[in-house]
């Protein structure tokens, strides 16, 4: 299992042809208290960079972009009743969607954990 990061503060955990996508701890902290996550329906076909989800705090709404192209297999329905999970465990139980990835080479250009850490330190 490899975990990769984007400059838009999404993380992607890949196992086989399945990717789990969420937002990073850094992003969750910046947003403040998450109050709602709008998730895509199963089967939606997203290209890399498409709007995949929306994450809302009280005074802000941020689009979450598909870090890789693929088809949505599952959305994290737990977030519907408990959006605070995104704050409590952003890179674990607070995942957003599972996707069937169509182009694994897209992962190559993304940051690993160390590179992302350095990236955030510069912000």
């Amino acid at each position: 299992m490899t975990v990769k990061y984007t400059e838009d503060h999404e993380w992607v955990s890949v196992e086989g042809d399945t990717a789990i996508v969420g937002i990073t701890s850094y992003a969750a902290e910046q947003l403040g208290d998450v109050v709602f996550v709008e998730l895509p329906e199963e089967g939606r076909n997203s290209n890399k960079g498409d709007e995949l989800a929306v994450v809302e705090s009280v005074k802000a709404a941020s689009d979450v972009y598909a870090p890789v192209s693929g088809i949505v297999k599952e959305a994290n329905s737990e977030l519907e009743g408990a959006p605070e999970t995104v704050n409590q465990d952003p890179e674990g139980k607070g995942w957003f969607v599972k996707m069937l990835i169509t182009d694994p080479t897209q992962l190559d250009a993304m940051m690993d954990a160390d590179a992302y850490k350095a990236f955030c330190a510069d912000l």
């Binding site: 208290d33 109050v35 709602f36 809302e56 705090s57 009280v58 959006p83 605070e84």
Partner: peptide, 8 residues
């Protein structure tokens, strides 16, 4: 007032 609670 707790606006987070109101929105969640």
């Amino acid at each position: 007032l707790d606006e987070t609670q109101a929105a969640r």
